[in-house]
């Protein structure tokens, strides 16, 4: 378990880091928490020539409020996110999702920016990013751009990020009033990754109907996705067990589920429905509990 030789950089500022990734482009990998990259390198499934360790760029590890947005720096660890009062208040879904990632050791090292950049199809965060309509901010030497979560995840471990870009922060909009959210996940028993994970946000109107619902699904397909068909079924309706069950049935419609030794495509599809319904039930209960 020894990686192939590589050149290591540990820039102390974002500008230095950006210069390095611009210079080395495709041949450089960013090291943020290392929970995916280091094992891949040790197995020599990843053989980058340059490793740019951004762990010393302190400014990237922060959680703050900015103009009504919750802003989470890329180097915030999963533990930072799950234990942050501000996150629990402004985006409890994210805190709950973070608490479901890996194990304590992984949560203490792994970072939100690293996870999103790596974009494992079974990672937990992407489902919440989608359900929360998050914005992902990428910096390069030519400036920054903001990518909506729904456009960020392109394909298997492939995102909108271009060589030379660094994901610097994630911005979460304020939730509508009378909102509730939940993340429910079927764990792959060996790795703890999601075989099917559903992150749900529902918002109620004054009469208790569902004003809007957002459902992010991970683990099921090569990339995370929004269950827009199910969301449409829910919008404007009075919640009922039948409605939730019917909508949940649809969450994986139109996607081609992954299949491996842990779960067939059919089982992933079925588990996605069950876990989406359970997440919806929990989210609704929380929304109904909100005084708004």
């Amino acid at each position: 378990m020894i990686p192939a030789a590589f050149e290591y950089f540990a820039p102390k500022s974002l500008d230095d880091a950006l210069r390095l990734v611009e210079r080395h482009g495709d041949e450089a990998k960013l090291l943020a928490g290392g929970q995916s990259l280091i094992p891949l390198m040790k197995l020599r499934l990843s053989v980058p020539r340059y490793v740019v360790d951004i762990g010393r760029i302190r400014s990237l590890r922060s959680i703050r409020e900015e103009g009504g947005w919750l802003v989470i720096g890329a180097l915030s660890t999963h533990h930072d996110v799950e234990s942050s009062e501000m996150v629990r208040l402004m985006a409890p879904l994210l805190a709950e999702t973070a608490s479901e990632i890996g194990d304590v050791q992984v949560r203490n090292r792994g970072t939100i920016g690293g996870s999103l950049s790596h974009s494992d199809p079974a990672a937990d965060y992407p489902a919440a990013m989608l359900a929360l309509d998050a914005q992902i901010v990428a910096a390069s030497s030519s400036g920054t751009r903001t990518i909506h979560a729904s456009e960020f995840f392109l394909d298997l471990m492939t995102t909108q990020l271009r060589p030379g870009e660094i994901l610097t922060e994630v911005r979460i909009p304020r939730l509508p009033e009378r909102s509730g959210s939940a993340y429910r996940k079927l764990h792959q028993p060996a790795s703890g990754f999601a075989l099917a994970g559903a992150a749900v946000r529902v918002s109620l109107d004054e009469v208790g109907k569902i004003a809007s619902a957002a459902i992010g699904i991970t683990g099921v397909a090569v990339r995370p996705f929004r269950a827009s068909g199910a969301e449409a079924m829910l919008a404007g309706k009075k919640p009922s067990p039948k409605l939730l069950a019917d909508a949940s049935e649809k969450v994986a419609d139109g996607v081609e589920p992954l299949a491996d030794i842990h779960a067939s495509a059919a089982y992933r599809r079925a588990a996605a429905s069950v876990y989406a319904r359970r997440a919806l039930e929990a989210a609704l209960a929380r929304a109904e509990g909100e005084k708004g």
Partner: peptide
């Protein structure tokens, strides 16, 4: 070959 972080 290169897919995300995996390369060889």
């Amino acid at each position: 070959y290169k897919v995300g972080a995996v390369s060889g």
